[in-house]
Design a protein around this nucleic acid. Structure first.
Length: 282
DNA sequence: CGGCATGTTGCGCA
DNA sequence: TTGCGCAACATGCC
């Protein structure tokens, strides 16, 4: 599920489902997901509150809650980790039973209707954190690409300051929030730039190409998810169905020149690229 | 059984 | 101080 486009879709869904609703029950028994919180604190912080808004920065979500008085606002921060997802169903239907991998459940009342919002996460690398202030994981994020954070000057600055491979810089959440392994791999393929190139070696036009690659790939993935709609196929099924140019395609022909795509490890992450058309700066 | 996985953090070492 | 590499976290799937 989780890179910027997936999280943005989750944000829009949560916004549509929850804003204006009042939380009547909240349960999460998973202490690992709640770290450093507790099931009791989770329930206590949410029940009785009204949802005022749902925001996103990078891969983090922030659900803004209103208390009985304005000074009692609380926030629920959520990260999808590797396999997290949010779903919705109306309470009372046949599907009242907890689906597989349900880790948290929030019951709301909205416009006289009861609904259930669920957090599912098979691998449990996600987070659910309640706080009355912004948490450091949120405040230390760099600018978000969809909020105008993807400008060439900022990127050029980050590259100029580091000899680390360009792919690692782009995936650094304090440089740019929301870029994961798929977006970085695809953007660099689009930019025709070898992911191992040190940041300091990039030319002005390289930086522009990386920015354009990121922008285009984010837009493409967002459009793809919008096309499928909420009742489309399960997320897992659109990872490897031919929509990627490089990600997950090691050994297969590069769509541009037919050369077999190479695979290396950068920052502990699998990295696929074409040695023929993606130029290595040094 | 072995290997890989869309993410993040922390540790040890150069 | 910075930058790596690597393991760990917990689990599913091919």
């Amino acid at each position: 599920m989780p890179e910027l486009p997936d999280v943005e879709v989750a944000r829009r869904n949560l916004h549509r489902w929850m804003v204006g609703g009042t939380i009547v029950a909240a349960r999460c028994a998973d202490r690992y997901l709640l770290r450093p919180g507790s099931p009791r604190a989770f329930e206590h912080a949410l029940v009785g509150r009204t949802v005022a808004g749902v925001e996103r920065k990078g891969k983090w979500l922030k659900v803004v809650l209103d208390g009985p008085s304005a000074s009692q606002g609380r926030r629920l921060f959520a990260h999808l980790g590797m396999t997290g997802d949010w779903t919705e169903g109306s309470a009372g239907d046949a599907e009242n039973a907890a689906p597989r991998f349900e880790r948290a459940r929030i019951d709301l009342e909205r416009r006289g209707r009861a609904l259930v919002v669920r957090y599912l996460d098979s691998r449990r690398f996600g987070r659910l954190v309640v706080s009355s202030d912004d948490i450091v994981e949120w405040t230390s994020l760099g600018p978000d690409p969809l909020a105008g954070g993807l400008d060439v000057a900022t990127l050029a600055d980050a590259f100029a300051r580091s000899r680390r491979p360009v792919k690692e810089i782009v995936m650094d959440q304090s440089v740019l929030a929301g870029i994961g392994n798929i977006l970085a791999t695809e953007a660099l393929w689009r930019a025709r730039l070898d992911p191992r190139s040190p940041g300091t070696t990039l030319s002005r036009s390289d930086v522009r190409a990386v920015a354009r690659g990121l922008r285009d790939e984010i837009a493409r993935e967002l459009a793809e998810r919008e096309d499928r709609g909420p009742d489309g196929p399960a997320p897992e099924t659109y990872e490897t169905d031919g929509t990627f140019n490089a990600y997950g395609r090691a050994g297969a022909p590069c769509p541009r020149d037919g050369a077999p795509l190479a695979r290396v490890t950068l920052g502990g992450r699998s990295t696929v690229f074409c040695k023929v058309c993606q130029v290595l700066r040094r």
